[in-house]
Design a protein around this nucleic acid. Structure first.
Lengths: 344, 344
DNA sequence: TTTCACAATGTGAACGTTCACTGTTGTTTT
DNA sequence: AAAACAACAGTGAACGTTCACATTGTGAAA
């Protein structure tokens, strides 16, 4: 179980074996065109035989580029232990893939809002840039974002695109997606559509979804009723509470558009307890299409965000920024997934 | 959006400002006792004022220690895109936390079985060690593990502890957990207990769970019936297929112990389609306690693995190995979570 | 033939730390 | 009072690359 007695080989060893100078080895392995095809191939072969790999630390130190990006998750101070929003976990997968495709390494870290994450990674040269992921109260981290920007840190974030953009942003077109949900419910003959989710500017994504819903209602000539909007952050508990409040208010409604699947799942629980049948009495639409959405009874109709596209877009946007060309913010369309909770 | 015109400060700048030599700065910031309390504090203060952080690359290069570990997920060649086993995602969270507590950075990467992951990370000095995560056919990657070990790579893996251990291993005590599940079902009066999951040595974890079940049956004086064991890998589809085969076989059974929650969920779907009621006709127990387990109807009774403990144990074991002291393999107990699928 | 350009490699330094020593002081021991 | 020893700080080198520039050889243009 001990370590190899002999140290691992360096580029000098390869150089010696190949009968060239050490920098030539470096050039060859990077695929530099100024090394002849022949020597390049020879060096590659020797490197492989000797089991040599470039030392990333030395490389990064000298070139001032780590080919690594850091992924920072953050949520409101997590109440319980480690219940991470499943949607972001899907995102993690797609970002990982996007990085792998480009030969980038990915550092990951979960952050509490209070931490001073804003200084750590890029400054210590661990990463060339940051990807920021997380719902939550926008106003809370707005300040940090500005600070990042001021520091000249490269970052891309997932979130609401519509806000006066702080840095490079990629997000779902929440208004379009909200409209999609609204139109679907309306097409099912529903008119009293409640919205569960914050609609204030602290939660611009939710607000976008709500205004999309309102647009759909308006287009259909239905008056939207502000009293049918109930605040909820993105947890199952919040959804349960909001739906319960809705039911107990005595207002009449025949559909619920939840700002996230977790909210929707909580809401369905509350509706069931209140004796409301889904979709008979109340149709329910969620948002995100998390894995659990297809496992509820009835299965949840929801808006799927383009997770795969998002990962690609985030990495691409960040990379562009690192290389000095800023890309415009990008909105990805949502897609309606029809399941049982709206009557199939 | 441009970069700071002036380069970021180095330890020399701090040294100059503090009126000491540069290595003293390095020592002070590492908390070296050989720097007097006074100067240490002074240097800390100046560093903070100047917004200085230690360059991780230089530090790692010189000290030959990256304070980073790499987390490698791998599964059987993923059929569809990025459906990652939710259980491992929970694990990711706990490992992240365990790393953060120790000031370690975490690199993550998803691997196809075919890739040559076994050489990459530690050799290039990106990471001090590897954590390997993934179910799957053991025989498939067994060879790679041996290779890693031979290379002197430090790694810890999550998996079956009982096998002739390749390297440092942490895992759930599958036999104990299986017994727990069996005892619970027996206490509910069930006697015809089917097991859905591979029981061969390619899947030692599943096999352990099965033998735990058999132990429980034996202790209760019930003969275990090998024909009630159906192979299934850990997906919802596999669970569906296995349960369907079970039903169609015409054998009588009144309980199902699934080797994973996904299998259980698939099985419940098949049972529902076959007109069997859960838990009335058939009680169901899963394994893992993934988030979706509490959202099914009825909610799924399951065995919870100690995810938090696992993350801690893996990181600790790995760290020990890096520091030259090998820790023995570790088994963590499973915990029964009783929900509706076994009658509450 | 001379000249210039270009392709291919070599040379020396630099990236920003940490390591192993060497010097200082000032305090204790005998 | 000399010797011994801490406690603290400084000096020079080293980690393994990549960079900027200098050097060589070769063939085409003059």
């Amino acid at each position: 179980m001990g370590r190899k007695p002999t140290g691992r080989p360096t580029s000098f060893d390869i150089a010696y074996a190949a009968g060239v100078s050490q920098p030539t080895v470096s050039r060859a392995l990077r695929g530099d065109k100024s090394v002849s095809e022949k020597t390049r191939e020879k060096i590659r072969q020797i490197a492989q035989d000797l089991n040599y790999t470039v030392d990333k630390n030395a490389s990064s130190l000298r070139s001032q580029r780590s080919n690594t990006i850091a992924l920072l998750f953050f949520e409101d101070p997590t109440p319980d232990q480690s219940m991470i929003n499943p949607f972001f976990l899907g995102m993690l997968g797609s970002i990982t893939r996007a990085c792998a495709n480009r030969g980038l390494d990915l550092l990951i870290s979960f952050q509490q809002m209070e931490d001073d994450w804003h200084v750590q990674y890029q400054d210590s040269h661990r990463a060339d840039g940051l990807i920021l992921l997380g719902y939550g109260d926008y106003t809370l981290y707005r300040e940090r974002l500005d600070q990042l920007e001021e520091q000249g840190t490269h970052f891309a974030r997932w979130g609401s695109v519509s806000m006066d953009s702080s840095g490079a942003t990629v997000g779902t077109d929440n208004v379009q997606a909200g409209r999609l949900a609204g139109e679907h419910l309306i097409s099912k003959g529903r008119k009293g559509i409640a919205f569960l989710g914050h609609a204030g500017e602290q939660y611009p994504e939710f607000a976008g979804r709500y205004s999309g819903l309102c647009e759909a209602l308006k287009s259909a000539g239905i008056a939207s009723d502000k009293s049918l909007q109930y605040d909820a952050i993105t947890t199952e508990e919040a959804g349960y509470a909001a739906a319960k409040a809705l039911v107990e208010s005595g207002q009449s409604f025949d559909a619920v558009f939840a700002a996230s699947d977790l909210i929707a799942i909580g809401a369905m629980r509350a509706l069931a307890e209140a004796g409301k049948r889904v979709p008979g009495d109340v149709a329910v639409v969620g948002f995100d299409d998390i894995p659990a959405a297809s496992l509820t009874t009835p299965p949840l109709t929801t808006i799927m965000q383009d997770v795969r596209g998002a990962g690609e877009a985030l990495v691409e946007t960040l990379l562009a920024q690192v290389e000095g060309r800023d890309l415009p913010p990008r909105k990805l369309p949502g897609k309606l997934i029809v399941r049982g909770s709206t009557g199939g």
